[in-house]
């Protein structure tokens, strides 16, 4: 008997969440921390089944079933209203006596609050305190991280709003073009706007896929950059629409030269993964002359009108805007239709 008392003292120190039961389920001893929990719950430790329910394995009913699970992990629930989940293991002690040791496991955060547990309720070697420490430390670290993430997400949106680059081709975007045109107009500098359109682009996309389409757009971008000066601005407006802004270049022959080189290079088939993409470029240009000032929108409209004239005239060509272009459309479209 003295031996058993010594032994329970050892267990109380090392496993304060244990209890001792006999084969009928009567509780003979309860560890100090479990005692505190039961007291808080207003429960009297008389019979095992009056205190704990076995949730898993579900087959366990009554003491023989429980004893059959010797050494295996048990999922238990303590208390009636809003029970607390615990893990447990049963080991035989001596004839007809068993120890069930429990752990708070995942309920630990709730349990320390609910039962006002302190460091002294856990043995010094128990990891519970370290686990609580880690939960609080990680929560604080995660909060700091997620605050940073929120700020970065906001900064990303702001940066995108300010961005002036088309992500697919690396060319400038519409915002950059507007800013450039504003600058040219505020200095009253001469320049030429050239609108360019990729013909048959949709067919490439539909038959060879979007990757082929993207490749064509990137090839177009490469050609535009190579065939223009460093100060020229190559813009992708979206889809297969491009624009060039050529500051201080208003000589019709020079402009036509630039357009012709671009058109010629894009007329050659573009290889993509063993297949050929066939496209063509139509272009239209309009010059801004400071002596006859027009709004930048008007200049762009003229370039677009010239572009449509090129398309109607059979594509893969360049048209410079001229005053009689407004009457030309009908004739041009008739010409296209009769081809």
């Amino acid at each position: 008997m003295n031996d058993l008392e010594d032994f329970t003292a050892v267990l109380d120190a090392l496993c304060p969440l244990h209890l001792m039961v006999d084969e009928l389920g009567a509780i003979h001893h309860v560890g100090p921390t479990l005692c505190k929990i039961l007291k808080t719950e207003g429960m009297v430790p008389g019979n095992f089944w009056g205190v704990l329910k076995v949730q898993r394995p579900r087959s366990v009913v009554g003491m023989p079933g429980l004893i059959a699970q010797t050494g295996k992990r048990l999922h238990l629930a303590l208390g009636c209203a809003n029970p607390i989940e615990m893990k447990g293991v049963l080991v035989p002690l001596s004839a007809g006596q068993f120890i069930v040791n429990l752990s708070l496991s995942m309920s630990v955060v709730d349990a320390v609050q609910r039962y006002a547990l302190t460091s002294t309720d856990f043995p010094p070697t128990d990891l519970t305190i370290d686990m609580l420490y880690m939960i609080e430390a990680k929560t604080a670290a995660l909060q700091a991280s997620s605050k940073l993430n929120h700020r970065l997400a906001g900064a990303k949106v702001a940066a995108e709003e300010k961005a002036q680059t088309d992500t697919l081709t690396g060319l400038k975007n519409r915002r950059a073009m507007d800013l450039a045109l504003d600058r040219l107009h505020s200095w009253n500098s001469p320049y030429t706007v050239m609108s360019l359109d990729l013909d048959f682009f949709k067919a490439v996309n539909d038959t060879l896929g979007h990757a082929a389409g993207d490749h064509v757009l990137q090839t177009m971008a490469k050609v535009l950059l190579e065939e223009t000066r460093d100060d020229d601005i190559a813009v992708r407006l979206g889809g297969d629409e491009f624009t060039l802004i050529l500051p201080h270049m208003t000589d019709p022959k020079t402009v036509d030269g630039v357009a012709s080189r671009i058109i010629a290079r894009l007329s050659a088939p573009i290889p993509f993964h063993g297949q050929m993409c066939h496209v063509a470029v139509s272009a239209g240009s309009a010059a801004f002359d400071p002596k006859r000032p027009l709004s930048r929108e008007a200049v762009q409209e003229q370039a677009d009108a010239a572009l449509y004239a090129s398309k109607r005239a059979g594509r893969a060509r360049h048209t410079a805007f001229s005053g009689d272009l407004h009457e030309a459309p009908l004739a041009a479209s008739t010409e296209t239709a009769t081809r």
């Binding site: 302190t118 460091s119 305190i129 609080e136």
Partner: peptide
């Protein structure tokens, strides 16, 4: 006092 279970988060 130090309460193990107080949620500061």
């Amino acid at each position: 006092t130090f309460d193990l279970g107080v949620k500061t988060a």
